[in-house]
Write a protein that binds this DNA or RNA. Structure first.
Lengths: 214, 214
DNA sequence: TAGATTGTTAATCGATTAACAATC
DNA sequence: TAGATTGTTAATCGATTAACAATC
């Protein structure tokens, strides 16, 4: 283990590793080699070893990695062993989907603990035990509940305004679902979960000129 | 313009460019330089020029890029000027959200034209003018409706099975929302829109040890 | 014309992969 | 011990950035 700066590419692979390891664990696989992981993920085994080695010596020479042990280590790296509170703004379909989608609170400790909306007729309604709050309460709630991550699921034209309010409230990171580029201070990290980007770039790779009779 | 192989990184930036250009167009901006685009997107202007130059000479020296003209060109590159039919499997919250979310059919021509679910009690229900169909009809519908892209919004343990059926039906690309790594033939392209990855990697960047009294 | 900005080549930077000594 | 596989260094590959001639 050496303390270099960890590249973003490395960090983005960690959740994928974790996902696969959880699956292997469910299948009662106890040990896995970088070669096997590479095969399953379509990655170079050297890359996997190098990625993991940034954070510690997790493997055993001649043996490989202990699945449960590696899961624990990656969870630690990603800070999933502590509870991280999350706020969500925008209770449209997508917001609802995310609130209900507790997959990400099953294995990790990221929890949506507050939900906000700008629409007066949404305020006060219940989503999954949470009462939709007005935007005016955002700052206070973020502070009181130690909320560290904000999720934005509002229409694109409202996204920047919500981001500003999150920043103002002292959030550390933003996950933005709106198809908009956000401007925030450098110390705030924004990740984009904008599926239109994925969908559009997918279209690029389609074959040209499929004859369509119509 | 030169015909090299286009790297994935370049392709992934194109939707972002397009997004911003649409916004500039709405603000009646007629011309934009790579410098301005770079400022707005946090990218190096040389990179933007180089990205665009892969596909053609879209700019004018001493002037910049005509916004509407560049929009048209990028739309062409991404094949958004033809209608591309899309199928969706999984009518949970997320599936509903995507069906209703017609943002991506406002500016581009990717259209969800068929919806499927495995649950008997979902079949026959209506989502946005579309009748939920059983999985048994997937192959035939894909063929009849020239569906080229499949979206997967089922639970992770069902994702691979759905992917197999999409491949079998002759789909060209898959957008997978399930937190699972899919195995498909090389010629099928899979993009992941798995927000848990984004959320988990975001957690990595949080400050350590925020003292939480509780 | 003078100023601005492209398209592109060359230089730099960073990330991936290969190779192998260490060792379980 | 022999075989396997790590952790890590060195080599390669690719992507980003700088620089600048071409030209609007």
């Amino acid at each position: 283990m050496k303390q270099e700066k960890i590249s973003e590419a490395v960090v983005r692979r960690l959740p994928t590793y974790l996902q696969l390891l959880h699956e292997l664990d469910r299948r009662d696989v106890e040990t896995v080699s970088s070669q096997e992981l590479g095969d399953l993920l379509g990655l170079n085994p050297a890359q996997i070893r190098k990625d993991l080695a940034y954070f510690g010596d997790f493997g055993r020479k001649g043996v490989g990695y202990d699945v449960q042990n590696l899961i624990g280590n990656i969870r630690n790296i990603l800070k999933l062993n502590q509870t991280i509170n999350v706020a969500l703004v925008g209770t449209g379909n997508l917001g609802h989907a995310l609130c209900n989608y507790n997959k990400y609170s099953r294995d990790n400790n990221l929890k949506i603990v507050a939900v906000f909306d700008q629409h007066p007729n949404k305020i006060g309604t219940q989503i999954n035990n949470l009462t939709v709050q007005p935007m005016s309460e955002l700052k206070q709630t973020v502070e009181e509940q130690y909320i560290r991550i904000g999720i934005i699921t509002v229409p694109d034209d409202a996204a920047q305004s919500v981001a500003n309010q999150f920043v103002e409230a002292g959030i550390e990171g933003i996950l933005n679902f709106a198809p908009a580029v956000l401007k925030v201070p450098d110390e705030i990290r924004v990740h984009y979960a904008d599926f239109t980007r994925e969908l559009l770039s997918l279209a690029f790779y389609l074959e040209n000129e499929r004859s369509k009779t119509e």
